Structure formats: C-alpha cells, structure tokens
Computed example of a mutant assay.
Amino acid sequence: MERALAVLTRIEDDVKKLKTTDVKKEEDLEYDLGLVMASDPNPLDHGAIRADRELYLHQLARDNCQLLINKLFELPKETKDDVTAVVLPPAQMRIPREKPVPKPKPLSKWEEYAKAKGITRNKKSKKVWDVELKRWVPRFGAKKAQAEREKNWVMEVPVNTDPNTDMFAQAAEKKRERVAKNELQRLRNIKRNMKVPTVGVTPKDVSKSSTSELTEAAALARRSTASLGQFSRKLPRDAPTKERGRRRQFGPSVGDTRGEVQGQLELLQTLGRRPAGGAVDAEKAANRVIHQEQRERAAGKADAKPKKGKKRWIPNTKKGEKQKKAIAKKAGKGKAGKGKKGKGR
C-alpha cells in the first residue's frame, strides 16, 4: 500500500512539472504553416530579461513552439504506409534561393522532331509477352539478352549469301554498330547544345557546318601536337587564326633576380608618372579621341576610293574640269604627253 502511494505521489509530481498545451498570448502569432514557421509580434518583457535572460528566452521559445504545434494538429491528416502525417498548405513567404534556378535541359534532335510532329511518348511496360518462348520477357537488361539467345539458337542463312557465313557474328557486329551510332548521336547532341567546335565528332555532312566551326576545328587539330602547333605545316589558303592559350612568363625564383628588380623599378616609375590623386588629363584624353576619329575617317575614305579598272564619276563643274585635266595629264593624254609621243614617232 505504501509503495502504491509513493508511485502515485511521483506521478502527481511529474504531472505538475509538465506544462499545459493551452498557451495564452495578448496577440496571436503570425503563422506560415507551409514553411512550419511562426513569428511573435508581442513585445518582450525587459524586467524578466534583466532578472534571468536565459530562463525567459527558454520559456518564450517553448510557448511559441507549443502554439505552432497546436496549429499543425488542426491541419487535415493523411495515413500512408502506417504513417500519419499532416498536409501542409502552400507557403506564403517567398524565401530567396541560395543558388540560381537551374536552366532547362536542352532538347535533343529527336525530342525537337517529336515536338514539331506532335509525337507523344507513351510509357511502356517493363515486360513484354514473347510468343515463341511463351513467357514474359524483360524489355531491356541481361535477361532480355539471355531470352534472345534462347529464341535465336539457330539462324537462317539467306539464299544469296555464302553458306559459310557466321550469322551470329554478323548479328553481333550489327548490334555494335547500332550502339556506336547511338553514342555518336549522343555526343552530337552534347556538342550542339554546348556550342563547341566539331572535333572528334564529325558531322554527317561537313557542308552544313559553319565556317567558324571548321576554322576552330582546324586550329585545335593543328595545336594538338606535342609542340602546340609550332612546327605544324599550314595550308596554302589557311586563314590566320587568333593565338590561343598564350602562357604567362615568370622570372626565375632562384639565382639571378636582376630581371625581377628591374621590372619592379619600371613599375614604380610608371606609377610615379601618373598625376597625384589619379586625376585624368582631360586634354590628353580629348586629343586621343580626336586622333581616333581622324584615323577612322581616313580609313573610310581609303575604302571609298574607286578600284582600278572602274571609271570615276566627275561632276561637270569648274572643279571637275580641273580634275579631268589632271587625270588626263597623269595618263599621258595631255598636251605634254602628245608632244612626247609625236617626237618618238
């Protein structure tokens, strides 16, 4: 009897230590059950914080968690595989992503064709019924190959074929070709999506490749030697390509460091020439802009000059008459030119 009373007393003490699930607040919490989150708009009790901050924060966190759990228990529940869970509503707050949104995977050549033609992909079953073997056979995998060997234990030789031909080896060779063709097509899709030059994955029709792709492929092939293309022979009509992969040159780390000291001195002299405060010389900058514009204008005039063999149009003005006389004199058709020709005759 005494032992039972002691147990009851202990249970009552444990119950007293447990706090109630009914928590009261002046203002209700703001909930976002989709993210299992709650925010407390009530002001803090600064007196309790001064007395015992850790205890106050612990009680506050416990009460807010209890209110959030009470709200979760009010949501609709569903049971699946002997597990009961609540159905969370859609989230209200948008949380920024740590990483950018992944880009959609580009379509392959077949997927683009199927989309254009409206071909839909139907999900196929994993096993198919084999009429000859009278059983269900996997559509893919090792057991499929085993079933094919059982079914094709003998193969017919066509009429116009050598009777000594190994049909099994021929079938295996055709299968290897199909696998290689699929792999080549996969690499072509990767190349087309990544926009890399055609090197190692030759297209079916080279004429469909762009000039830039072929030029880039030729440059990469030339630089694939041990000397990085230094001794590669160029083609007669090979277009000049941009230098790629120029390596930085570093001075010696041990021994004579005079080159490094000289470089540092030149750098200090260059920094010393700059005006104080990093101010920009407006007059010098304007002169550079004017000089660049003059060069562009001169280049445009040079391109606009007529090529040899084409007649130049000259207006019928006084200035034009002077230009005609000057051109005729240069060509030997003027008065001086006629006199010389007459003497020669």
Rank of each mutant, 00 (worst) to 15 (best):
G245I: 01
K234Y: 08
S224C: 12
F250W: 15
R247Y: 14
V261T: 02
G229S: 07
A218D: 04
A279K: 08
S210A: 08
Q264S: 04
L228I: 04
D281Y: 01
D281S: 00
E260P: 01
Q262I: 03
K234P: 08
P240V: 07
K234R: 15
V289D: 07
E216W: 01
S253D: 07
K234H: 10
S232G: 14
I290Y: 12
R273I: 03
R248W: 03
P240A: 14
S207D: 14
T202C: 10
L220Q: 09
T211E: 13
R258P: 00
T241S: 10
F231R: 09
T241C: 06
A218S: 15
S210D: 13
L265H: 14
A282C: 03
L228Q: 06
A285E: 03
S207Q: 10
V280D: 04
S224K: 11
E243R: 06
R288H: 08
S212G: 08
A221D: 09
R295V: 08
S210K: 10
L214M: 10
P203F: 10
E216N: 05
V261I: 11
L271M: 06
P203T: 02
P203Q: 04
A286K: 08
Q294A: 13
E293F: 02
L271E: 03
P275F: 00
T225F: 12
E283P: 00
G200I: 13
G255Q: 02
V289H: 05
V289L: 13
K208H: 13
L265W: 15
G259W: 01
D238K: 08
Q262K: 10
S212V: 11
E213N: 15
P236E: 15
T215S: 04
L267F: 12
G251S: 05
R247A: 11
T215P: 00
R288P: 00
A218P: 00
G272L: 09
Q292A: 11
A279I: 11
Q269I: 07
S209D: 15
T257D: 10
Q249C: 02
A218M: 13
R244D: 07
A226F: 07
E213K: 02
K242V: 14
L267K: 09
E213C: 07
G251A: 06
G263M: 05
H291R: 11
A219P: 02
A276L: 01
L220T: 00
Q249N: 06
G272Q: 14
A286S: 02
Q264P: 07
F250P: 03
I290W: 08
E243F: 03
